[in-house]
Computed example of a mutant assay.
Amino acid sequence: MSSVTAHFDLPLDAAAPGWARTAVTAVLGGWGLRDRAWLDDAAVVVSELVGNAVRHGGGQIVVDVEAYGRQVIVSVADGSSVVPRPRDPDGTGGLGLRIVESLTVRWYVESHQGGKRVRAELLSSPGDGVTEAGTSRTEPS
Rank of each mutant, 00 (worst) to 15 (best):
residue 74 V to H: 09
residue 31 W to I: 08
residue 48 E to N: 10
residue 45 V to Y: 01
residue 63 V to Q: 07
residue 33 L to E: 04
residue 35 D to Y: 09
residue 63 V to I: 01
residue 40 D to Y: 00
residue 57 G to K: 11
residue 42 A to K: 04
residue 73 I to K: 00
residue 71 Q to N: 08
residue 47 S to L: 02
residue 39 L to F: 07
residue 25 T to V: 15
residue 60 Q to F: 08
residue 66 E to P: 00
residue 46 V to Q: 06
residue 74 V to W: 05
residue 59 G to T: 10
residue 71 Q to P: 00
residue 71 Q to R: 12
residue 53 A to Y: 11
residue 56 H to S: 03
residue 69 G to L: 05
residue 63 V to D: 05
residue 42 A to I: 01
residue 53 A to L: 09
residue 66 E to C: 01
residue 61 I to W: 07
residue 26 A to S: 12
residue 39 L to E: 06
residue 29 G to E: 10
residue 70 R to Y: 01
residue 57 G to Y: 12
residue 61 I to A: 10
residue 55 R to G: 06
residue 38 W to Q: 00
residue 64 D to C: 05
residue 34 R to E: 13
residue 63 V to P: 10
residue 23 A to L: 15
residue 54 V to Y: 12
residue 35 D to G: 03
residue 69 G to S: 03
residue 46 V to S: 05
residue 23 A to P: 02
residue 59 G to Q: 07
residue 39 L to V: 03
residue 30 G to M: 07
residue 62 V to F: 08
residue 36 R to G: 04
residue 73 I to F: 09
residue 65 V to E: 07
residue 45 V to S: 00
residue 40 D to L: 03
residue 67 A to K: 10
residue 57 G to I: 09
residue 53 A to R: 06
residue 45 V to A: 02
residue 41 D to W: 01
residue 47 S to W: 03
residue 30 G to Q: 11
residue 66 E to H: 14
residue 62 V to P: 02
residue 36 R to D: 14
residue 45 V to K: 02
residue 42 A to Y: 07
residue 43 A to E: 02
residue 47 S to P: 03
residue 63 V to K: 01
residue 25 T to Q: 14
residue 65 V to A: 12
residue 42 A to V: 05
residue 44 V to M: 00
residue 55 R to A: 15
residue 50 V to F: 05
residue 45 V to R: 02
residue 35 D to E: 14
residue 62 V to C: 12
residue 61 I to C: 08
residue 65 V to H: 08
residue 24 V to D: 11
residue 66 E to M: 09
residue 59 G to S: 01
residue 53 A to Q: 10
residue 67 A to L: 13
residue 42 A to H: 10
residue 35 D to C: 06
residue 55 R to V: 15
residue 67 A to F: 11
residue 70 R to F: 00
residue 47 S to E: 15
residue 40 D to F: 03
residue 23 A to N: 11
residue 63 V to F: 07
residue 29 G to R: 10
residue 23 A to W: 15
residue 38 W to A: 04
residue 72 V to I: 09
residue 22 T to S: 15
residue 66 E to S: 13
residue 29 G to N: 12
residue 56 H to R: 07
residue 26 A to F: 08
residue 73 I to D: 15
residue 53 A to M: 11
residue 37 A to E: 14
residue 51 G to L: 05
residue 26 A to I: 01
residue 24 V to S: 11
residue 68 Y to P: 00
residue 58 G to W: 09
residue 39 L to S: 02
residue 50 V to G: 03
residue 69 G to Q: 04
residue 71 Q to Y: 05
residue 37 A to D: 14
residue 23 A to D: 11
residue 56 H to I: 03
residue 44 V to N: 00
residue 52 N to I: 02
residue 64 D to Y: 04
residue 53 A to C: 11
residue 29 G to T: 12
residue 35 D to N: 13
residue 66 E to Y: 11
residue 33 L to K: 02
residue 28 L to E: 07
residue 52 N to S: 10
residue 67 A to C: 09
residue 31 W to E: 06
residue 47 S to H: 06
residue 28 L to M: 04
residue 29 G to D: 07
residue 75 S to D: 07
residue 32 G to A: 10
residue 57 G to H: 10
residue 23 A to V: 06
residue 63 V to L: 08
residue 35 D to H: 15
residue 69 G to E: 13
residue 63 V to H: 07
residue 29 G to A: 13
residue 55 R to H: 12
residue 67 A to I: 08
residue 37 A to S: 12
residue 72 V to Q: 07
residue 56 H to N: 13
residue 65 V to L: 14
residue 38 W to S: 09
